Computed example of a mutant assay.
Amino acid sequence: MDDGLNELFSALSDPTRRAILGRLAYGKATVAELAKPFKLSQPAISKHLKVLEEAGLIRSGREANSRPRELEPDAFKKISDWIADYRRFWDQNFDRLDDYLSTVQGNENDKSGD
């Protein structure tokens, strides 16, 4: 089953691409705007953008003479849904740990009350 998660997580594995996504969280930006904080050429940034677009994390718009990029919310929903399964797993484990600690603390209180 190809759910696209491998491509999504591969794209997210690069810190430059994560920083680009962080910038795009504030709104659309052109390649030149995205390249500013990095010591990379516009072609290098464009390669990162291509990876992000192919993974479905961003999309390219069209405004006058530019093609600003913006986030693609559906991809982030897919990631969030996948993570939610693991969040439930950890929540259940923490609930069991809370129960155990309450039991242990209750036993200690019973012993000190003797």
Rank of each mutant, 00 (worst) to 15 (best):
89 F>G: 03
66 S>M: 11
33 E>Q: 15
43 P>G: 06
86 Y>T: 00
83 I>C: 05
48 H>L: 10
25 A>M: 10
19 A>M: 13
33 E>T: 04
69 R>C: 06
87 R>S: 07
29 A>K: 04
35 A>C: 06
64 A>I: 04
20 I>K: 02
76 F>A: 04
83 I>K: 08
66 S>L: 14
43 P>K: 11
21 L>W: 01
32 A>W: 10
53 E>M: 05
13 S>Y: 03
36 K>Q: 12
15 P>Y: 02
61 G>H: 06
65 N>R: 07
39 K>D: 13
88 R>Y: 10
21 L>T: 04
76 F>E: 03
18 R>W: 06
78 K>T: 13
36 K>C: 03
10 S>F: 11
40 L>G: 01
18 R>Y: 08
40 L>E: 04
77 K>H: 08
69 R>G: 06
63 E>I: 01
76 F>T: 03
72 E>M: 13
66 S>G: 00
47 K>R: 15
56 G>V: 09
67 R>E: 11
21 L>C: 13
55 A>K: 04
8 L>H: 08
43 P>V: 07
32 A>P: 00
74 D>Q: 08
18 R>M: 13
38 F>T: 09
21 L>M: 05
58 I>A: 02
25 A>I: 06
46 S>H: 06
87 R>M: 07
35 A>F: 07
29 A>G: 10
10 S>D: 12
21 L>I: 13
81 D>C: 02
10 S>G: 10
36 K>Y: 04
82 W>H: 14
31 V>F: 00
79 I>A: 13
50 K>S: 12
14 D>Q: 09
74 D>W: 05
8 L>Q: 14
52 L>M: 07
25 A>V: 05
89 F>D: 14
26 Y>C: 03
74 D>M: 08
17 R>K: 12
34 L>Q: 07
36 K>D: 10
52 L>Q: 04
64 A>M: 05
56 G>H: 11
79 I>L: 13
81 D>H: 01
28 K>T: 07
55 A>D: 02
31 V>W: 00
41 S>K: 11
34 L>I: 13
45 I>C: 00
41 S>F: 10
27 G>Q: 07
55 A>M: 05
13 S>P: 09
60 S>T: 11
72 E>G: 04
28 K>L: 06
24 L>Y: 03
29 A>Y: 05
73 P>G: 11
48 H>Q: 14
71 L>W: 01
11 A>W: 15
27 G>I: 07
37 P>F: 03
63 E>F: 01
44 A>G: 04
20 I>S: 01
60 S>M: 03
59 R>E: 14
11 A>I: 13
67 R>A: 12
53 E>V: 01
66 S>E: 15
70 E>H: 07
23 R>H: 11
57 L>A: 00
40 L>R: 14
37 P>C: 09
8 L>A: 11
31 V>P: 02
88 R>F: 10
73 P>Y: 04
62 R>E: 08
73 P>A: 09
22 G>I: 12
30 T>N: 04
81 D>R: 02
29 A>P: 05
37 P>Y: 01
